[in-house]
Amino acid sequence: MKRREFLQASAAAAAALGYSNTASANEPAEISQALSDHKISSIQYDRVRLKYPRHVGRNSRLGHHGNGPTVSICKIRTDKGAEGWGTFYAGRDRAEILNNSLKGLKISDLITPASGIKPSAPEQLDIALHDLAGKILEMPVYKMLGAAGPESTNCYSGMIYFDDLDPEDNPEGIDKVLENCRYDYNFGYRQFKIKIGRGKKWMPEKEGMQRDIDVTNQIAKAFPYAELLADANDMYTYQDTIEYLKGIGDTELYWMEEPFREEKEGFEKLKKWLKENGKSTYIADGERLPVQAQLISLAKQGLLDFYLTDIIGMGFTPWRQIMPRLKKLNTLASPHAWGSMLKTCYISHLSRGLGNIPTIEGVTCFSEDVDFSGFEIKNGKISTPETPGFGLKLLK
């Protein structure tokens, strides 16, 4: 998602879900006082470099995803020496404007731990303010959220792309995909999300569909104790989806993500087919260009099992506000995280804080700029550190 799409998703979510981002009247006085004692002294812009363990190739819609992103961040410092930082989807100029306009404000003017950032707080500071509040209060973010979720959450590898198609002059084939799965399995993952839809852009349609089926079945055979998810990035049709599901036969999928552009009729037909064929596969959607009112409508009708809007695109505070609504609708959540391990880490706190997130998208990254060591992935689950804030340390 682009930054403009992030902002649109956040605003649309607020309107669709009818939440009010106001402070809790039940905030303990000592917490409010602790945040009031700190005032913003500076907001600084910076960037951190993240590296994937391997080159990530194409999906059904986009070309090569490369070797890892350089992520914009901001660091908020207070007059008492506290510092919080986080992903910042805005530029250096915006950081300078915020630095000039917010300097001297009390942290309590911008965030309430019980509910998130206030209307007076720029949404680009959502992550950094949560991190800062946690550090001032000497507690991890998940405890500010209520610690209502499990101590660890399933975490799937979101890095199984069309690497069988590369290099273009001498493709390595399915063995390369299996090699990548082996790396991720050894890294600690026990779920793989498989990108499908090769026949929509990169291969002849018939051959591409067969390759999607063969890749899925060969991964299932090679890793019988792993759980598989599939993601077509909205490039299948309903008929493509059924052809694929028939083609993989007895291979079970945990979920089918973005099979085609979300809409009532197609999801009703897909739900019916899954039920008639004894499949427990969930339908997951809401990542690309989400229309929040439509997603909520689908959830109300029992047609959307997993709500996937991006953790940054929606915003950390809006996700906090949405979750109770999703629980009432019996709709599960797994915020989109692709691109950055930072997102995976933020979601782990959301899961441990609020629950209702059975699995998290894992985006394996290494960095000389960020210490990810508190977020170990072991036997398929990701841990959440007990250190204050998000538990992510800058190394520069």
Results as ranks from 00 to 15, higher is better:
222 A>Y: 08
257 E>P: 05
370 V>F: 01
388 P>W: 00
270 L>V: 07
9 A>Q: 09
131 D>I: 00
45 Y>C: 05
313 G>T: 01
37 D>L: 12
380 G>V: 02
70 T>W: 14
169 D>M: 06
150 P>G: 02
83 E>M: 15
143 K>E: 14
343 K>E: 03
10 S>G: 12
264 K>D: 14
373 S>I: 05
50 L>K: 01
34 A>M: 09
115 S>P: 10
83 E>P: 06
126 D>Q: 00
12 A>S: 11
395 L>K: 15
250 D>E: 12
277 N>P: 03
368 E>W: 09
99 N>Y: 05
1 M>V: 13
27 E>W: 10
245 L>H: 05
134 G>R: 03
37 D>P: 08
20 S>T: 10
394 L>C: 02
13 A>N: 08
122 P>Q: 07
355 G>N: 08
59 N>V: 04
161 Y>S: 08
333 A>K: 00
186 N>Q: 15
106 K>I: 11
189 Y>N: 00
208 G>D: 04
132 L>F: 04
270 L>Q: 06
91 G>H: 07
386 E>T: 07
58 R>E: 15
164 D>W: 00
196 I>S: 06
112 T>D: 15
260 F>M: 13
150 P>T: 03
320 R>H: 14
228 L>F: 04
302 G>R: 08
28 P>M: 13
18 G>F: 06
198 R>Q: 15
288 R>G: 08
150 P>F: 02
248 I>F: 07
196 I>M: 10
181 C>N: 06
126 D>C: 04
248 I>K: 03
130 H>L: 11
61 R>K: 14
339 G>W: 01
229 L>Y: 00
